[in-house]
Simulated scan of single mutants.
Amino acid sequence: MAIISKSTKAWFERINGSKNMLWLLGTLSFLETIILPIPLELILIPLMAANRQRIWLLATVTTAGCLTASLVGYGVGMLLFQSIGNWFIEFMGMQESYQAFQTFFNQYGFAAILVIGIVPIPFQVAMITAGLSGYPILLFVLAAFIARGLRYYGLAWLVYRFGHSVLVLWKRHALLTSLVGGVIVLLFVLGLQALASLVM
């Protein structure tokens, strides 16, 4: 536990010892996806390392919390963009990110949602844009599930193999790893799209 601060360690111990740990983790995942600017990995990695017998359940709960928040964001974009959506984007200071993603999304659709779910760009812009554009909700959920599933189940596998040391590695290489992963996913999906167009 020396790799985290004393305050974070104390908070972690309270969560880890709580009978409501799974609910708390799901809520934190929901809030991180919607509004919290703090990476969930800071608490998720120690929790996974301390609960290796339930590590896949933790990944599932975290993914579920994220998907629930994604649906809320999609609904805001679809039904409440002019009021809540615009205010939220301005409040979070995401105007430039939102405008840039709109162009990216219009060109790549499904692949754009996958990529932004992996790279360190606020996922809120993908949720709101997908809802506003009327993008099929099932495809949106599938893309969000794949992207966030790669993030959380991949993290669970790393913690299962390497334990607490993953937190140090994540702090050092999270940005580079996520960017490389996003590029790989984008190239893979675009390759599949190109192949499908040739076949059809």
Rank of each mutant, 00 (worst) to 15 (best):
F188D: 06
S18T: 14
P46Y: 02
F110R: 10
V76N: 03
S7C: 08
T103Y: 14
A59L: 06
A59P: 05
A143T: 07
T129R: 02
L28P: 01
M200S: 11
Y160K: 15
G191M: 01
T68A: 12
R172M: 12
P122L: 08
P37C: 08
Q193S: 10
M92Y: 02
F140Y: 09
F162H: 14
S133Y: 08
L71N: 04
L57P: 00
G182P: 08
T8G: 00
G85C: 03
N16Y: 03
F110H: 09
Y74P: 01
T62L: 00
G134F: 05
K171M: 13
W56H: 03
F105I: 02
Y135I: 04
V61E: 00
V159A: 10
E41F: 02
F123Q: 03
G75I: 03
I116D: 03
G117W: 04
A126F: 02
R151M: 11
G93N: 10
M92G: 03
G134E: 08
T63G: 02
P122Y: 08
T177E: 06
K6P: 12
L114K: 04
I34Q: 11
S18H: 13
L80P: 01
P39G: 12
S133T: 09
A69C: 10
T62D: 01
G109H: 15
P136W: 02
I84N: 07
E90V: 14
R161I: 09
F81W: 12
V159W: 12
M127P: 00
Y152K: 08
F12W: 08
A144H: 06
M200D: 09
S7G: 10
A2Q: 13
Q53L: 09
L186Y: 06
M200I: 11
A49C: 07
Y153H: 06
Q102P: 00
W11L: 15
G181K: 06
N51K: 15
V199K: 11
E32N: 10
F105A: 13
P136N: 03
V185K: 00
I45G: 04
P136E: 10
L158S: 14
L132D: 00
A111M: 10
F105W: 13
G182I: 02
L192M: 15
M94G: 05
A10I: 14
A196E: 08
Q95D: 14
V141N: 03
A196T: 06
T8E: 05
M48Q: 08
V180K: 03
L28D: 01
L198K: 11
R161G: 08
I43W: 00
T63V: 11
